[in-house]
Design a protein around this nucleic acid. Sequence first.
DNA 1: ACCGCGATGCACT
DNA 2: GTGCATCGCGGTG
Length: 175
Amino acid sequence: MHEVAPDLIGVTLLVDGVGGPIVEVEAYDQDDPASHAFRGTTPRNAVMFGPPGFAYVYRSYGIHWCINFVCDTPGRAEAVLIRALRPEHGLDTMRARRGVESERALCSGPGKLCQALGITREHDGAALDEPPFELIERAETPRIATGPRIGITKAVDLTWRYGLEGSPFLSRPLG
DNA sequence: ACCGCGATGCACT
DNA sequence: GTGCATCGCGGTG
């Protein structure tokens, strides 16, 4: 998973053609107190315990949706939270959905990103290599920065947040 | 710049 | 009933 997470930086994520290259992710695994998978399988997190290449979508704070990519160590319930991307395709659609003009504010956080791309519970369990999802491999290897994860109260010391170094589209700067 | 807090749903204890 | 893998606004330096 700590190979998958940085490898996602620079990969373009599209939902119905709306999206752009991922600039920030966080890794979560089963032995991690901050992970939804920590306490074992439940109806909500069931997708995390399934095969890789699917979306785990959940509601956060009753308002926002967040999307994870399930990754591929069998039985390890590993997933990568997609936190931010650089808006590149469907800017007008994103602005309409988000209700903000600033390009920086469109996808600079997991809740914002899902709102901008139209990701909801309907996408929970969906295959990432089938419509409406589309992943486009990156052409060049980006410079990766790491830092502590955001918005959690447990395992705060782990630096499992990965980002594109110096990108203005991060939810927050990395170290 | 920072900090506090309200909004709002629901999984889990 | 409790506590969030959040966001944006309104207050204060």
